[in-house]
Every structure is written in structure tokens, then in C-alpha cells.
Amino acid sequence: MLLNQFLLLSAILFTIGVYGVIVRKNGVLVLMSIELVLNAVNINLIVFSTYWGIAGQVFALFTIAIAAAEVGVGLAIVLLIYRNQRSVDIDELDEMKG
């Protein structure tokens, strides 16, 4: 099995996702970057499940479902902000600090 290659792929996806979270200014794109990280996780889980049985695949299914719920809530909050501020640039949200 190409275990290492799969792990590497997931690590790269994870890194790209983290990069996106830290750098992209658009709220929706940040949400998409987080999806990338979650997909890296799913790859890991499914690869390992070929060794250790079905639990990994079940875990991956749960992750997908919960990610969907999370993104639903996230989009709702981004929409809320868009309504109030007419912008989804998350850099403009620094009213509270210190």
C-alpha cells in the first residue's frame, strides 16, 4: 500500500488549508480552506481504516456530516455580518481588542 503517499497528500492538504485560513481575507474562502483541512482528515481516516477496520470510515462519515453542519452555521454568521456591514472582509472585524 502506498501509505506514505496518502499521508503526504493529507499533510499537504492540511498545510494548504491552514495557509488559507491564515491568509485569505474573504470570510467564505476561509470557510473553504477549513473544508480542505477536514478533507485531509478524511483521507487519513480512510487510509488507516484499510488497516484497522471499519471504524475509520464511520468516523469519516461523521466528519463529513458534522462539517456540513458547521459550514451551514458559518455561512449563516457570515451572511449576518454581510447584512450589517455590507462586506465579508474579516479584517474589518476588530472592534474588540486588548
Binding site: 470570510g27 477549513i34 477536514l38 458559518g74
Partner: peptide, 24 residues
């Protein structure tokens, strides 16, 4: 709104890191 988005983004990011750890 700001409080919600900050909590949400950081929270989701943290659970992504957590999940990656759990997968390993």
C-alpha cells in the same frame, strides 16, 4: 456578530486541528 464569527472561525479551526490529531 464579531464575537460569533471569531468564536466560530477559531473553533472550527481548532476542531480541524483536533480532528487531524485524532486521525493520526
Amino acid at each position: 456578530n464579531e464575537a460569533g464569527l471569531k468564536y466560530y472561525l477559531m473553533g472550527v479551526f481548532a476542531s480541524a486541528v483536533l480532528l487531524y490529531g485524532m486521525s493520526l
